[in-house]
Design a protein around this nucleic acid. Structure first.
Lengths: 194, 194
DNA sequence: GTCTATACTTGGATAGAC
DNA sequence: GTCTATCCAAGTATAGAC
């Protein structure tokens, strides 16, 4: 098989494994089985399991970033932004998109070689969240950068709790409260950036 | 040695290991070395490594709950509550108290046997946060239960990001913004619960 | 209650045939 | 480029001596 196809299958296998089994059980043998190929190929193509997992993280992060960008572009008010965020949150939970990210972030917490790699790949998210808030009435509540940091942290925390409890209702209720608050803020500054 | 002392040493060893090496490297051998005793004793006293880790989680969770309760009791306004929360957040980061919790929550994400145990042990935190907010002007922004869920999620998320980046400044800046907002809310409802 | 010794399992990684 | 075979390290858990 061509190199590109095998690499692709391995990356998809790694994503599926991280999502369903977590970083702790994302072994070379498990991933290779899902990719339908041999365990040794991981080391041939990626050098180590860790580097394959980082490639998987790259793919998920980019795919989600694109999705979030589209979400922001479609929203014409802060309230709309919050409501779409709620929909995307459910989408992420249903498909386990963010679960992959959370697994890698969690694993990086106490792994010195993984930490800088994961941190670098999470960087765009903060910039993205800051852009989304800029020009929005929410920016009146604080600097966009600080607010963006909080939004990312909250999103990750809500994902963590929703998976833990197997119950997304509290998170969704919070989104709804935020939407009410947002529509209030929209009254004073109804228009978003030019 | 007496049973109680060995159990205690093992629990402390488990806490230290979770904090410094994470759940992935919290093995029986590593923990026993820190406790200054033999690996086999873990199975004699706790039955399995997992059950020892849960005992460690119990101890940390209870110790933090007591600390947070004291913090809430000392605060006379929402602004004071936020400022003390900021101080405790730094305390948690410095000593790695919440790191232990985060490790267990993260590990529980994709471990069917761990998930319900960890979820049960996190339960009091939401109730605690809800109590802290009740009677506070923050309750005007939404139901205390929903808000409490958000506060816990945000706290965990901020811890995750601060450890990842090795930089707590963005989190602290966020606390400061929240304090400003809180003092504004205090103007309208200066007094807390009777 | 605590130790040593050991059985058993899983996983990362490499060598070498094809 | 992909496979089989294999080495080696690390981990859980138990048996049995002390």
């Amino acid at each position: 098989m061509a190199t590109a196809e095998t690499r692709d299958a391995l990356i998809e296998g790694a994503i599926a494994t991280l999502r369903e089994k977590g970083h702790a059980h994302a072994s070379a043998r498990e991933i290779a089985a899902r990719a339908g190929c041999n365990q040794a190929l991981i080391f041939y193509h990626f050098g180590s399991v860790e580097r394959l997992l980082l490639a998987a993280l790259d793919r998920v992060a980019e795919s989600r970033r694109a999705r979030y960008q589209a979400m922001v572009d479609e929203s014409r008010s802060l309230k709309e932004l919050v409501r779409t965020a709620r929909a995307v949150f459910e989408e992420d939970l249903d498909h386990g998109h963010v679960a992959v990210l959370v697994e890698m972030i969690a694993a990086a917490q106490s792994d010195d070689s993984l930490r800088p790699e994961v941190a670098e790949r999470l960087q765009p998210w903060r910039g993205f969240a800051a852009d989304a808030l800029r020009g929005t009435p929410a920016a009146r509540l604080g600097g966009p950068d600080e607010l963006a940091h909080g939004v990312v942290a909250l999103y990750l925390g809500l994902e963590l709790l929703a998976n833990l409890d197997g119950d997304r209702a509290p998170a969704l209720a919070l989104f709804d409260r935020a939407a009410s608050l947002a529509s209030l803020l929209d009254l004073f500054t109804p228009r978003r950036k030019s």
